[in-house]
Design a protein around this nucleic acid. Structure first.
Lengths: 168, 168
DNA sequence: CCTGAAATAGATCGCGC
DNA sequence: GCGCGATCTATTTCAGG
């Protein structure tokens, strides 16, 4: 991905599309004081350069039955043997590679980052309720051979949560 | 927000729009084997019920100069007096209300949840580099009168990060 | 709840500036 | 790089089953 130059107009376009991903090219063009053709050219350029990665619809978790949000800190086994203990499905090169692959298959886990600090991974987990969470922990996360230790916290209140990044 | 019933077709529509927020109504209609009109009605219904909260464009943080992602745990002062110490701009009812208001004004903080456990808040913070992060900490977060203690971790690797919620 | 047709609006592209 | 104008495609509404 080549890092491209962004002028003031590009940043304005990005700000608009970050807050309304379905804004029509004409609307965007009006707001940045361009005619539709150059505006569309800029948007296409931003898409092709990968500055705009994706357009998505954001859903309300509560409305689709996912009323409980948890952040789970995970520490993995240090030794590779763990990966071949009971329940392991892959002959893995490392617990890390194995864990990363598994995470892809767990729909409750919407985000997973390898982190600095004493805990290796931070997971964002959407579930319906405590029972659902408990089931996920018992039947999925805790029985994973790479996992050594976990610590969970639960969201009490959303103060802020946006996909819009600040444009410097 | 009234919780509405979602049938199989609704869930299919939601799945499509979660992965492509700009999918045309015709495309969606084709994929769920409907003609455009009833498909559009369903989408409008999902939007009006708040199941679809928003359409957005997702940007690549690296391409816009935000190469460092941090999660910051914040613990607040227990006593209300803290909120009126040096630098406080609001006569606040509580350190929590005061902190929540401030977070809105900090563009680096894209997410903030009040959490269970020993730390009160979890913040997701996008910055350009360590210097930028350091500046944010020194000049913004740590001088906030409600803040008692912070612990930061930094993302080493993104394993997974999606806005698409699982549709049960 | 669906289909299908008709009117409106937006996307797209070649070309001159 | 921008803007204009022609063309094509999609959105949106509404009659009727």
């Amino acid at each position: 991905m080549p890092k491209i130059e962004l002028d003031k107009t590009d940043r304005k376009i990005l700000a608009i599309l970050q807050s309304d991903g379905r804004a029509s090219n004409q609307d965007v063009a009006d707001q940045v004081s361009l005619s539709p053709s150059p505006c569309l050219r800029r948007i296409k350029r931003l898409e092709e350069a990968g500055v705009i990665r994706q357009y998505v619809a954001l859903l309300d978790p509560v409305q689709i039955g996912l009323g409980l949000l948890a952040y789970v800190n995970v520490r993995l086994e240090k030794h590779s043997e763990g990966a071949n203990a009971a329940g392991a499905k892959r002959t893995s090169s490392s617990p890390h590679a194995d864990f990363a692959l598994s995470v892809e298959d767990w729909p409750e886990v919407v985000a997973c980052y390898a982190m600095t600090g004493e805990m290796d991974y931070l997971l964002r987990v959407h579930v319906g309720d405590m029972e659902h969470f408990s089931r996920f922990m018992m039947k999925t996360l805790l029985i994973h051979p790479s996992v050594a230790d976990v610590k969970s916290s639960f969201a009490l209140q959303r103060i802020k949560d946006t996909t819009a990044l600040p444009l410097v």
